[in-house]
């Protein structure tokens, strides 16, 4: 399982990549592996606002439904249609092709509360 060093992670298994003052958000390798074959994703629309720790969507695999929790607060500037049309991308490439949202951050300091790759790996080890 991979956890790129340049990303930040939440305890709800989302990742964040900072691009300027925009956060790119998706779910982690661990999350996609636990879910199994993802068949459906429900995401907010462009212009919607999301809040840290609150649900912004749903991901469904063959066997399970899971809420998506926003790791940051802000407004959605872009939604990845590729992942809505072809949710299997989440299993195949969770960090690059299967990004979900771009969010214009309300407060960049929120990122400091997220975990580093090492901290996240430690967290999932404990959770197992």
């Amino acid at each position: 399982m991979e956890f790129p060093e340049d990303l930040k992670y939440s305890k709800e298994h989302e990742w964040v990549r900072l691009e300027g003052d925009t956060a790119v958000v998706g779910i982690t390798d661990y999350a996609q592996d636990s879910l199994g074959d993802v068949v459906y994703v429900e995401l907010p629309a462009e212009g919607d606002s999301v809040s840290r720790g609150e649900t912004f969507g749903v991901v469904e695999s063959v066997k399970a439904v899971s809420d998506l929790y926003s790791p940051v607060s802000g407004s959605v500037t872009e939604v990845n249609d590729t992942v809505v049309d072809g949710p299997e991308a989440i299993n195949e490439d969770p960090y690059t092709e299967a990004w979900m949202l771009k969010i214009e951050l309300d407060n960049i300091d929120e990122l400091e509360d997220l975990l580093s790759a090492d901290e996240y790996q430690q967290f999932i080890e404990e959770e197992k």
Binding site: G36, D37, S61, V62, K63, N91
Partner: peptide
């Protein structure tokens, strides 16, 4: 065993 490589496969 609930799955080996993946349910769909």
């Amino acid at each position: 065993p609930v799955q080996y490589t993946g349910v769909v496969e």
